[in-house]
């Protein structure tokens, strides 16, 4: 357990550096990770939300996650995909099987070219939302996954990357 990556949050939004866990100019993502498999799901409407989370569950299932972990992962994908539909209309969910040293895990990256999040710090606080949701989308996903990174620029879009490692 001690070797597991600690939960961390990176926010590389130009205007909203929240936690300087890495130098601001370092690329989002982790070059130590080897990509073993990748699936991309185009998100264009609410039925794509279901497709994305089902594909994610199957992919994570190949890693031997427990059934409750699979439910956590599928739910996180659902929340991220819904954010795309609600705020950006369309975007993409990329699912990857990763290897980092001895560990394997799944990465979920939700990317869109929507309006961006003006106040990332607030969006990551529990209970805040600018749209019809419980306001638990992003903080909830951060709680469900081991690693969570968000990059958002107003007018350019948002990319959220989350990873969960097999214990």
């Amino acid at each position: 357990m001690g070797a597991l990556p600690r939960k961390r949050t990176l926010v590389n939004g130009e205007r909203n550096p929240v936690e300087a866990a890495v130098p601001a100019r370092s690329p989002i993502g982790n070059t130590r990770d080897r990509v073993l498999e990748e699936i991309a799901v185009h998100i264009n409407g609410d039925t794509d939300i279901v497709a994305a989370r089902q594909k994610g569950r199957v992919l994570a299932g190949t890693l031997g996650f427990s059934s409750s972990e699979l439910t956590l992962i599928a739910t996180a994908i659902s929340e991220l995909a819904r954010n795309i539909v609600l705020y950006a209309k369309q975007g993409e969910i990329v699912l990857r099987v990763l290897e980092r040293g001895e560990q394997r895990g799944i990465m979920v990256r939700a990317g869109d070219q929507g309006p961006g999040i003006p106040d990332v710090r607030r969006a990551l606080q529990g209970g805040f939302s600018t749209s019809r949701s419980l306001g638990l989308g992003l903080p909830g996903v951060r709680r469900l996954m081991d690693e969570f990174e968000i990059e958002s620029r107003v007018g350019y879009g948002t990319t959220v990357t989350a990873r969960k490692w097999k214990r």
Binding site: S68, T71, L72, T75, G126, L136, P139, R143, L144
Partner: peptide, 13 residues
């Protein structure tokens, strides 16, 4: 279901 209940609690739902 149990797994769903677990996830809902984690999410704060």
């Amino acid at each position: 279901q149990p797994d769903v209940a677990f996830t809902m609690v984690q999410l704060g739902l």
